[in-house]
Amino acid sequence: MLNELIRYNTLVILAGTGLLGLVSGVVGTLTVLRRRALAGDALAHATLPGLCLAFLIVGERRLPALLLGAAITGLFGLFCVSVLARGTRIKDDSALALVLGVFFGAGIVLSRWIQNRTTDGSKAGLDSFLLGKTSGMILSDVLLIAAVSAIVLFLVVLLFKEFQITLFDSSFAQATGWPTASLDLLLMLLVGLVVVAGLPSVGVVLMTSLLVIPAAAARFWTDRFVNMTCISAIIGMLATVTGVILSTLFEDLPTGSLMTLAAAIVFVFSAFLAPCRGWIWRNNRRKAFAKSLDISK
């Protein structure tokens, strides 16, 4: 079993998914603090029609083309959310739910259409994008993830100060001359990049979990933006790597779910045990406070 783990293939997969967890932890921190935790969810669901359209156009399962298609419809979905939420009486939560469902529905229709057309009935492997499958990951996939991670990490490190000021106090940022709208757009582009990179291994439905759970868990451990970003990155990496290891042990289980579950366990752990902000600490403090009131009486 140990041999199984250190096989070349497994190492490739571990590198790819670990990097993915890291980078989604970083971007997830930004979106959670932007109070747009579920924007990634809408984006991820909206990638499905893009995957199918790209397949229809290219005619075979070529990953870069599929992911490009996914990125296009995903970002278009997010664009629809912001148009709907701004220009009309639809509130942003409804807009998010609407876009998510309708795009996903369109994706299912297209995928069935493809299934009917392809003679071998292999579904072009599009089903694997729904819940994610890491076993097929090869070196070129990892290189793609690495490229995306490099771009995203470079931009986040470079613009860290700028993101911090826009996320914390956007009116002050605007008053001091920072282009808050462009930074917001850039953030959504980064989310798009990460989601698309994660589709093959985590899948459409659970990509959100990698963007939200590590960031939410990290918030329990620190009061500083820098630290939160780093901790979230570590948790993300931990979750994906654990997920992959588990999925090599239980081959019939979808990797995306195992990753999500690993992240969820870290979250529960953090929410209870983290110093200062964890439930146990807060509960103890509350009791101590109540006691001090009794004594002063």
Binding site: Q164, F168, D169, S170, S171, T176, D223, R224, F225
Partner: peptide, 23 residues
């Protein structure tokens, strides 16, 4: 700005907020 314009749960410390003035 007005106090309401800010997310007070944001993970940021007092000194970091003041440093924003120099950005």
């Amino acid at each position: 700005p007005q106090r309401e314009s800010v997310d007070w749960d944001f993970p940021i410390q007092v000194l970091d907020v003041v440093l924003m003035g120099t950005y």
